[in-house]
Design a binder for these strands. Sequence first.
DNA 1: CATTATATTGACCAATCGGTCAATATTCAC
DNA 2: GTGAATATTGACCGATTGGTCAATATAATG
Lengths: 193, 193
Amino acid sequence: MARPREFDTDAVLDAAMCAFWRQGYEATSMADLVAATGLQKGSLYKAFSDKHTLFIRALQRYLEQANRFNQQLLSQLDAPKVGVQHWFQTLVESYGTYADHRGCFSVNCLIELAPHDDEVRQILAAQTVYLRSLLTQAIAHGQTVGDFRTDMEAEDLSMMLLSLLYGIVTSSKGGVPIEQLQKQIRVAIALME
Amino acid sequence: MARPREFDTDAVLDAAMCAFWRQGYEATSMADLVAATGLQKGSLYKAFSDKHTLFIRALQRYLEQANRFNQQLLSQLDAPKVGVQHWFQTLVESYGTYADHRGCFSVNCLIELAPHDDEVRQILAAQTVYLRSLLTQAIAHGQTVGDFRTDMEAEDLSMMLLSLLYGIVTSSKGGVPIEQLQKQIRVAIALME
DNA sequence: CATTATATTGACCAATCGGTCAATATTCAC
DNA sequence: GTGAATATTGACCGATTGGTCAATATAATG
């Protein structure tokens, strides 16, 4: 018995996510978001309360999509080493080939917001725990089938691999060519054999 | 034959650097810089032209100081493995224990500015080249004395180690405890033996 | 002391910031 | 069609943004 929404919430969140992803939180103005989403300012505020809430919603949507990918590529692998390497390569190829060098949204948020934004920090901490559990499981499985060295704990190897991922996507923001990024993955995987 | 400066340029640059380091470029206003440096707005503009120029000067000063440290700890090591590990640990201990989680200024700049600020990107690219050369040299030396494995190129190992450093300081911004960061260094060094 | 040259100061500026809201439009239930 | 409920619109707001500048102060030179 009321007027229905004219826009698709998910599409609007995707557009906002893209803007925040490329420019960061502070550098993205409400005017940018109006342009990116196609909504009027008032509609944005009516639907999402304020800039920060809209940002959190966009971040959460990003993580949901990322985790669908992570879960798909890291769970129940027949060939853990190849699987982990493929997951890593695919991520870096995706993040490292955007012409606008937008990098990884999670890493961008860690750097720009985590130190002073409790909500963002908490969301990203939970994300790290989840991703690490997927990665640790894959590596531990790989150790049982001889894919990875067993003189180191799977927990420690997964932590290192995750930090390396963060570092590689950081390098990519400075314009390091994709071939150099890919080579680092091969080196890291080789060190874990 | 004219009135002399009342302030010390380096001290002002240090104060500005600290503000940019903690809050990022966009989130630091000229009002913040006035408060941090103790100068009046007009004096800041007279001495440094504009916000961006001031930022570049602060970044350059940061890199000079960082490279004095890097050069001191990575050149002509009698015990390359211990030396590299010590350099790494000292950096991470420093970056990972600031109460404000400011992280590494270079990494912050890579994430926030490198994609759309040519000057910053160029400065950081040169910095990466320099730091990598120091690190590669130390590792190559270590290979000749049996400290590091020789089945991998020193170039590749140094690249990986540098990315790992970037990743570890990124993790530190999310509040990962220092012990976990230090453990990653030990694991990485062990993998290189 | 007068001149020259630069430094300091703080009032001032247009533009933009995030955010609000009254007016209008649109839908469904009756 | 009427009324209730929500959506959309864009003008509007005070605060803050980066930046300017005329007035004043301070030094070295002659």
